[in-house]
């Protein structure tokens, strides 16, 4: 145990001092998947400089599911953007698989908030084009097999020839998830993936997502932005609660020590679940009844 930690420390220091030798190809004995160090993100706006998130540090282990939760505009998506490489931090650094993030890469699969399927391509083509772009060392036959496998995994194979416009919101999101899984990234970044779905579809999707993660031996690290407390608890190992922006910081990180596989129906009766739920509610909401709202 001690030696493991020690090696981790040594490798970490090595990674920081000698980044040249530190590529993805080298097998890393440590299990750190994402290492965020003192991230600050500021934007120039016509009203001056706006700081979205300030001095955030967070380490995520390989295979961990972590939710970022907070009110709208608290910078959760911005923080996520620094991991995906879509947002450049003004300060600090993000290491993904021990490599400094400078731009988006196919080691990170993104599921966007509004599905972001290409409307002119069929479901099949939407996934195929992405596989074709992201995976270089496979024949087109192998790529086609990958597309088929991933579409079957989300039960959309019979809809493969439809255009995104012909699908329901839940189906679109399943295509988007299949697309992210198809390039076999070590990290999945989900930006409010189920935000636009109705509660019933959402519930099914949670279980489906965990099933996909399980099928993959729980090796993928998942970071999810959400503002749904139940969703965050059901899916995550840890929930990162953020303060309100501007200059948002991490308010608290709540561990979810519930055993897996989790059952939607049973989990809500688990006393541990109720405690965590209460804690998160208290962290995020300060008005619980009409008495909490000051009268005019």
């Amino acid at each position: 145990m001690n030696t493991a930690i020690l090696t981790e420390e040594i490798v970490k220091t090595a990674a920081e001092t000698v980044p040249i030798f530190n590529t993805n190809k080298v097998e890393q004995p440590t299990k750190t998947s994402i290492d965020i160090k003192n991230i600050t993100v500021s934007f120039k706006t016509p009203q001056g400089i706006y700081t979205a998130v300030k001095d955030i540090s967070l380490t995520v282990k390989k295979g961990e599911i972590v939710s970022l939760i907070g009110h709208s505009g608290c910078g959760k998506s911005t923080l996520m953007g620094t991991i995906s490489g879509m947002v450049k931090p003004s300060n600090g650094s993000v290491m993904v698989n021990h490599t400094l993030v400078t731009k988006p890469g196919t080691d990170r699969g993104i599921v966007f908030q509004n599905y972001s399927l290409l409307p002119w391509f069929s479901v099949y083509k939407n996934i195929y084009e992405v596989v074709d772009a992201a995976i270089k060392n496979k024949t087109s036959k192998e790529k086609k097999e990958l597309v088929e496998k991933n579409l079957k995994m989300v039960n959309l194979w019979e809809h493969k020839d439809k255009l995104p416009g012909q699908l329901s919101g839940g189906m679109k999101q399943r295509v988007a998830i299949a697309r992210a899984f198809a390039i076999n990234p070590s990290i999945l970044l989900l930006d409010e993936p189920f935000g636009a779905l109705d509660a019933l579809t959402k519930s099914t999707m949670h279980v489906e997502l965990l099933k996909l993660w399980n099928l993959d031996n729980r090796e993928k690290t998942i970071i999810m932005v959400t503002h749904d407390i139940e969703e965050a608890i059901f899916l995550s190992d840890r929930v990162v609660v953020m303060n309100n922006g501007p200059a948002a910081t991490i308010k608290e990180i709540v561990d979810i020590p519930l055993t897996r596989p989790r059952n939607k129906k049973d989990i809500i009766h688990d006393p541990a679940y109720m405690l965590i739920h209460d804690k998160l509610l208290n962290l995020l909401i300060d008005k619980f009844s009409i008495d909490d709202i000051p009268s005019l």
Binding site: S84, M86, K103, P104, G105, T106, R108, G109, I110, F112, S116, L118, V130, A133, A134, R179, I183
Partner: peptide
């Protein structure tokens, strides 16, 4: 973003 994220 699709193009960026998936290495087009």
């Amino acid at each position: 973003n699709v193009g960026k994220a998936f290495g087009f």
